[in-house]
């Protein structure tokens, strides 16, 4: 499989001598959208944290585009991995308004066409001057998604990202998000409990249970 963009080999992760992930292997193609389901505590979120560099594996290798980003000798810090993470919790910076939250990950401070288009795509133009505490759960989640996508990450990690959204809103966001991901060839790994969501968005899906990752 030559076009595998993200490759995880024999990944092990222990916390206080308790095994969280054991001998996990996974390969994802560039621009592919995969989903991982599984019971609570099966290690789904930990896997996303290991890929993002927010946690360090005990053993194993993670490669992105054939380049090692984490193994026994190498560890690239999260800010240098060019990936995005969206979780279900409220993660907007409370001291910044929406526009400054969205611009946080950008190296430039001007509002360019890409930024404007994402803001319009996620229907948050009217919220730009609001602060996070003034947003509803759905609005906050759309801003969080926009903030991550505007940095054009090569890998997007989604941890139950649509939990707070109602069905109508989800179906408003899905097509735009999918189009954006395909257009920019963003490789995506989503953790979710919602089978409908998984079927609707994913190219492939897996179940993580008892340390084993099985295709659904």
């Amino acid at each position: 499989m030559n076009n595998e963009y993200l490759k995880i080999t024999k990944l092990n992760y222990e916390i206080d001598k308790k095994t969280i992930i054991n001998d996990l292997n996974l390969a994802v193609k560039e621009g592919e959208f995969i989903s991982i389901m599984g019971p609570s505590g099966s290690g789904k979120t930990s896997l996303l944290r290991l890929i993002s560099g927010l946690a360090k594996q005990s053993k194993g290798t993670i490669k992105v585009n054939h380049k090692v980003i984490a193994d026994d000798d190498t560890f690239i810090e999260p800010e240098n991995r060019n990936l995005g993470l969206v979780v279900q919790e409220k993660v907007l910076f409370p001291h910044l308004n929406v526009i400054n939250n969205i611009k946080f990950g950008l190296s430039h401070s001007s509002i360019d066409d890409d930024l404007t288009s994402i803001i319009e795509q996620f229907k948050i133009t009217h919220l730009l001057n609001n602060y996070p505490h003034q947003l509803s759960g759905g609005e906050a989640q759309r801003v969080a998604l926009a903030r991550t996508l505007v940095t054009k990450p090569k890998i997007l990690l989604l941890d139950e990202p649509f939990n707070g959204l109602d069905e109508a809103l989800k179906h408003e966001i899905y097509p735009d998000m999918q189009a954006f991901l395909k257009e920019h060839k963003i490789t995506t790994i989503m953790v979710s409990h919602n089978i409908q969501e998984v079927e609707e968005l994913s190219d492939r899906s897996f179940k993580l249970n008892n340390f084993a990752l099985k295709a659904i």
């Binding site: 927010l54 995005g84 979780v87 990950g105 940095t151």
Partner: peptide, 11 residues
């Protein structure tokens, strides 16, 4: 979680 967001946004 706020720290995680900032780190993955390049901080």
């Amino acid at each position: 979680d706020i720290d995680d967001s900032a780190r993955t946004l390049g901080s």
